[in-house]
Simulated assay, not measured.
Amino acid sequence: MGAENTAFAAHFSGKSYLKMLTGRGVNIANVTFSPACRNDWHIHCRGGQISLVTGGREYYRAWGEPAQELRPGDVVNIPPDVKHWHGAAPDSWFSHLAVEVPADGGATEWLEPVDG
């Protein structure tokens, strides 16, 4: 599960945990959200992200679209520059492998908190 995600705590509405699995070539992290925790709207600039749901129930929402409920085994390919958020269901933990698609100048841009 990893250690409490203090480095990015300002961008999460509850407790999350982070364990970097690799940073060589492709950044892959195991990110775990406590029940009802979600992160702020954000954009993966240039490279995008692949989210592999490994546990619990997740909600994923891209800007302008309804939230999707995801379960273990579900995969979301998030194109570059798509504003979105991830979060755990109110009654469930949620874990995913967050795979950053490599790109020159790729970065995560954190935006505003999610309303409601």
Rank of each mutant, 00 (worst) to 15 (best):
E58N: 08
T22Y: 05
L18W: 05
V82M: 05
G73P: 01
D74G: 04
V76D: 08
L21P: 05
G48H: 04
G23T: 05
I43M: 12
W93E: 11
G48D: 09
A103N: 12
C37M: 09
W110Y: 11
V101M: 13
S51L: 15
S95N: 07
V26C: 14
I43T: 14
A107E: 15
E109K: 14
R57W: 00
I78C: 14
F33D: 00
L52F: 11
D81R: 08
W110T: 08
G56M: 04
F94C: 15
V75A: 07
V82T: 12
S95G: 05
E58D: 10
A62Q: 13
D74K: 01
G106M: 06
A62P: 01
G47P: 03
N27G: 12
G106Q: 12
F33G: 00
D81E: 15
R61P: 03
W85M: 05
L111R: 10
V53S: 02
M20Q: 13
S95D: 07
E69R: 14
K19Y: 01
V75I: 15
T108F: 02
E100S: 10
H44R: 07
P35D: 10
R24Q: 15
L97N: 06
A98P: 03
H96N: 14
I50G: 05
Y60E: 04
G73A: 05
N77Y: 08
D104P: 07
D81L: 06
E58I: 04
Q49I: 04
H84G: 06
L52W: 10
E69M: 14
A67V: 03
P79N: 11
T54V: 11
Y60H: 14
K83H: 06
I50T: 15
